[in-house]
């Protein structure tokens, strides 16, 4: 496959994902995993989890990870192409919807719809986390420690109000010390 083909596959892939991503960028991660790892074979499980980790180490919307996947496939061009495909059309959609909404005042209908959709979005986010944990567990280091870090981090983020940065730092420290 030539580079150009990869770039188009990248753009079409993320365009499709963006139009279906209910509940934000992270909820679409399982579908990105399907595109990057299963369908196109651009990266393996561990590389996928590592790119996600790299995105988490930087500030910004979670969707920025798409830029890193794009970079992995086609360098900086891939980064911009993937980000534009992911954010461009949906932004236009949001803008158009906003214009229309001036007339619609279906606040109650909207709330009912939202209440039905939000659990799906949250479920998809949880599924993303599980896929990422699986990817991290099959690294070069030991799976038990990786799983322990993931569980510890889950509990920390769930039960405490401290910044998640602490968990990332602790994970980095434990990884650097104990993984070989």
């Amino acid at each position: 496959m030539s580079d150009g083909d990869d770039l188009w596959a990248l753009v079409w892939g993320f365009l499709g994902i963006s139009l279906l991503s209910v509940g934000g960028g992270v909820a679409a991660l399982p579908e990105m995993h399907r595109l990057m790892v299963e369908n196109q074979g651009w990266m393996d499980d561990l590389a996928f989890s590592k790119r996600y980790a790299l995105a988490q180490a930087a500030p910004g919307p979670n969707v920025m990870v798409v830029g890193l996947f794009g970079w992995h496939v086609a360098g900086i061009t891939g980064m911009f192409a993937a980000m534009l495909a992911m954010c461009g059309p949906t932004s236009i959609l949001a803008y158009a919807f906003c214009r229309l909404r001036g007339h619609l005042q279906g606040a109650i209908a909207m709330r009912v719809f939202e209440r039905g959709m939000v659990p799906i979005a949250v479920g998809l986010i949880a599924a993303s986390g599980l896929l990422l944990a699986q990817g991290a567990a099959f690294g070069t280091g030991g799976a038990p420690l990786a799983i322990a870090i993931s569980i510890g981090s889950t509990l920390f983020v769930w039960r405490s109000r401290f910044s998640p940065l602490w968990v990332l730092g602790a994970g980095a420290l434990l990884g650097a010390t104990f993984f070989q």
Partner: peptide, 14 residues
């Protein structure tokens, strides 16, 4: 990076 990846995964689940 593997340590950060494992922690980031837990962060999403949490």
């Amino acid at each position: 990076m593997q340590g950060v990846a494992a922690a980031a995964a837990g962060m999403v689940i949490g």
